[in-house]
């Protein structure tokens, strides 16, 4: 019996009177020769006797009546909850398929709508082509200030970018 934990468990069981008879005999034999176990047992028995002092107070006389009132109240609330749920389910059951279909359509509409650009009543704008984009950029080049594109004095002016060769 080297492990203090095992020793404490045995002492606890012995003090509580829950050891098997054979284990009890063996433990008592050990106690006869082990001072530390005897000390520990004495302290544990002190705790046991101290705890015995603490009796439970009598339960109040109205305990059961109050409990039955709470049970009855719970049953009434449960009945009311079940009645309301039953009536709602009877009301909603016929329209559930229609409601489900409407919800599906609404969801589909909301999902599809953001893919199109917003149109606030004017004519739809035509798609813009790459050719138009290049032409717009060339026009912008034409509008650049001449000082940046003017050759030094005596040198010929550079050919316009949009002239076809």
């Amino acid at each position: 019996m080297e492990c203090p934990r095992q020793k404490a468990e045995l002492i606890l069981s012995y003090a509580a009177g829950t050891l098997e008879p054979s284990a009890q005999i063996e433990f008592e034999r050990h106690l006869a020769s082990c001072e530390s176990c005897r000390q520990l047992l004495m302290r544990q028995q002190t705790v046991w006797e101290a705890l015995d002092v603490w009796h439970g107070a009598p339960v109040s006389s109205g305990f059961s009546d109050k409990l039955y009132e709470r049970i009855a109240e719970h049953e009434r609330a449960s009945w009311w909850r079940r009645t309301v749920e039953y009536r709602w389910s009877r009301l909603l059951r016929p329209v559930m398929p229609v409601a489900a279909a409407s919800a599906a359509i609404l969801i589909a509409f909301l999902v599809k709508a953001p893919l199109q650009s917003p149109n606030f009543g004017g004519p739809a704008e035509p798609a813009v082509s790459m050719e138009q984009v290049e032409r717009a950029l060339d026009d912008m080049d034409m509008l650049k200030p001449l000082s940046t594109s003017m050759p030094p004095a005596g040198m010929p002016a550079p050919a316009a970018r949009n002239q076809r060769i």
């Binding site: 934990r5 404490a8 468990e9 606890l12 520990l40 302290r43 544990q44 002190t46 705790v47 006797e49 101290a50 705890l51």
Partner: peptide, 19 residues
């Protein structure tokens, strides 16, 4: 067993004087 071991150890130290 761990809970009880620790609990009773504490109680033994706190109630040891109540012999």
């Amino acid at each position: 067993k761990s809970l009880l071991f620790r609990a009773y150890e504490t109680l033994r130290s706190r109630l040891a004087h109540m012999v």
